[in-house]
Design a protein around this nucleic acid. Sequence first.
DNA 1: CCATCGCTTCGGTGGCGCGCGAAACAGCGC
DNA 2: GCGCTGTTTCGCGCGCCACCGAAGCGATGG
Lengths: 243, 243
Amino acid sequence: MPTLAGFAATAALIADPARSAMLHALLGGEALTAGELARIAGVAPPTASAHLAQLVAGGLVVVHQQGRHRYHRLASEEVAAALESLGCLAALSDAAAVSRPRRPWPHGEAFRTARLCYDHLAGRIGVGLHARITGAGWLAPAPGGWRLTEAGTERLAALGLDLDAARQARRFACDCMDWSERRPHLAGGLGRELAQALLRRGWLRRAAPQCGGEGDPFARRRLTPTPEGARALRESFGLDLAA
Amino acid sequence: MPTLAGFAATAALIADPARSAMLHALLGGEALTAGELARIAGVAPPTASAHLAQLVAGGLVVVHQQGRHRYHRLASEEVAAALESLGCLAALSDAAAVSRPRRPWPHGEAFRTARLCYDHLAGRIGVGLHARITGAGWLAPAPGGWRLTEAGTERLAALGLDLDAARQARRFACDCMDWSERRPHLAGGLGRELAQALLRRGWLRRAAPQCGGEGDPFARRRLTPTPEGARALRESFGLDLAA
DNA sequence: CCATCGCTTCGGTGGCGCGCGAAACAGCGC
DNA sequence: GCGCTGTTTCGCGCGCCACCGAAGCGATGG
């Protein structure tokens, strides 16, 4: 019964530090095994197993057995969206607590520049692209999200996006509130294909997991623009990453 | 420091049933006293006081002392948006758990028809108006949300919205994911003025708190369309509430 | 000035749930 | 077959947190 109980129960799933770290790592979009998640969360395998069972029962995570490994993924885009909006809220209240808005973030500005939110782009580049793409009339509002215009079809196909694959998704294009920028970025099938295209083109690259190593849930989500990508983003979209 | 800790800490604030009930009641948009919230949550005054102190410290709630009463409100629109998206997620996982999507909701279809989400409209009427208003070209996408078009300025002013007041808000118009409908409704200053206008016109009315009484956090949010309002919504927006 | 009311602080109690180690189980390779 | 690895189940300890009653504090009203 979707009532107050379910409301609080779902929040309780996210509230535990170990589960929170797991969910955060899964926001990178990859499917991770129970053992990897245990190391990331810093708990023993039995503990991680119990946590994962709860996340699966709660519908936040789906599991896919392959041999003796069990791969865990976020259950849906809605989960990613809720986690981001919750993080946005946490960022707000943290800023209020120190009464100094937008103080530099210990985890590195790089994370704010570009990262994966489940399967689509987030961070400055994510919200910047969202603003340019919608502002340029490539997308038009549609019930429940966005639809492609003629101009958008042409330009995005030229960028190398697989628009047919995007249309296969349950939701074609919609907004997802960005945690660090507090403005929307593009989610849905189109958001996924946009991220894929930029990675394929070599404009963005998954960051090397050097800082913090495997135990760092942030590392799995961080993206860095290549020099070539930074130039292309500036020329094609007017995005100045230094700003 | 907005990091994993803040992430989980904010979720933990929402996770407790008593705090969850309080937050839910505050989604009605009214400022409530500590005593009222204690009764709503079904706990003793000292317990409620401790909970409220945590919510205030966490930045989810702001308090305003007036005489011997302490009035509590949600801290911001972002809090409301995060609560709705979390509720959306809970509704999804509940539906998955019973493996029967969209089963009738024990708390009454009325809550799905129309309710307040903080200060703006939610439910079928909320998402319906969002779709019609954006689909009709009254709003156009803008960085971070929506801007008024000429047509929209004319038509919404004719509806009795105070557009100047809407522009005073920190955010003029943006989307907020609807818990029950899982599609966006209109938030921001314009969303608030839209709700105010429909209430002023008598198209919607705050539901009488009969069912459940004061202890029912849902009662404070429920709205019902008047017969006149249902007719007007059908004629002006093509919204058929029976569907 | 005292009674009342709303709210908070303080101390003590209880229970939920996170944590681990040990052991059982399943897949895989030799 | 046997050992190795990844994962789950079981049992138990411990810590945190929600909860209440009683008392303290500030504001209101007669």
